[in-house]
Simulated assay, not measured.
Amino acid sequence: MNETIRTILDHRSIRSYLDKPLTDEQTAAIVQSAQAASTSSYVQAYTIIGIKDPVKKERLAELAGGQAYVAKNGHFFIFCLDLHRLELAAQLEGTLDSRTLQSLQSVETFMVGVVDASLAAQNAAIAAESMGLGVCYIGGIRNKLGRVTELLQTPDRVIPLFGMSVGYPKNRSDKKPRLPMSHIYHEDVYKQSTEELRDELHQYNRVISEYYAARTGGERKDRWTESMAKLLQNPKRLFMKALLGEKKLPLE
């Protein structure tokens, strides 16, 4: 096993950081690593916004649901889907017509941007962790996404997808056990045995329950399927489709 794989396998979310900002060199290395990620058809349909202003960090922490580590970290990155740049490219080439607009508003182009941003972010995370830094992805910035877009002054066709806090770990959290590889990795076709999948979930439930019990002194014994069932009982961010339309990202 090489050092890169060890870094990847040692990943855990870090939510407590020392009061020490990243250097400009560290920030540049993380962003350049993000840019080195694969991108569909070379479109590079994402933008990264780095937040250094402590007041803006505090506001983002509030909008994300009171997550302190959005405000207290070495640097906060926000990864955005960005189709505004593609629109400008079409304007420069004189091809901003109905066909181009159809492409900009298609589900496929939207998915390309989401995938591009996600690949870039994971490169950034691995780069940061290779420096001994900790990271935590922040989906909570979508809780009040309209206000986040106003705060960041993102133009039409640009939408913040998630944040990433990065910094020097104050405390290293435990690694959460992942689903068994046999549940995630199928060969040639999707595994058809529902009974087998259920058996694996029962086994995973026991692993997760024991993990939480050990971590909390027996106060918490959640099963994974229990947590997911509760999650699905509370539909989230149902405003998203309307907001995308307002940002000129209606999906067709």
Rank of each mutant, 00 (worst) to 15 (best):
I48A: 01
N73L: 13
S13P: 13
E129Y: 04
S103A: 10
Q192R: 05
D156T: 14
K175P: 10
G94R: 02
D97M: 02
E210N: 15
N123A: 08
Q35Y: 13
S173I: 02
V31C: 11
L60A: 07
R172Q: 07
L238G: 15
R220A: 05
R142V: 10
R12H: 14
P180L: 09
D82V: 15
E210K: 12
Y168Q: 05
E108H: 09
A45C: 04
M164K: 03
L231C: 13
N73S: 06
I48C: 05
M131Q: 15
I5G: 08
L92S: 12
N2M: 15
I138F: 09
K175G: 09
V158W: 02
R223M: 11
N123M: 02
N123K: 07
G146C: 05
S193K: 01
T194V: 02
D82T: 15
V207D: 05
S106H: 06
R215T: 10
D97R: 00
E226Q: 14
V158S: 03
I5Q: 05
S13M: 04
L119M: 10
V55P: 07
H202I: 07
V189M: 08
K191N: 10
L249M: 08
C136N: 14
G146S: 12
Y168I: 11
R206F: 05
N234I: 15
D156W: 02
S118R: 04
M240P: 12
H202P: 00
R172Y: 05
T27G: 02
N143C: 02
L232S: 12
S41L: 01
L201C: 02
L133Y: 13
R198V: 10
A117I: 06
R215G: 07
E187L: 12
S182W: 07
W224V: 11
S16C: 07
Q203G: 03
G245I: 00
T39R: 03
Y204C: 07
V207I: 15
Y42M: 13
Q44L: 04
S103R: 02
I51A: 06
L104K: 00
D156R: 11
V112T: 14
A229N: 11
Y211R: 14
D10N: 14
S33T: 13
D24C: 04
F162C: 12
A125R: 09
E25M: 06
A90H: 07
H186V: 09
R142D: 03
Q67K: 14
D97N: 08
Y168A: 04
A117V: 13
Q35G: 15
R12K: 14
S165E: 04
E108M: 02
I5H: 09
T95Q: 01
A242M: 00
R157F: 08
G50N: 01
A68V: 11
Q102M: 03
R237M: 13
K175D: 08
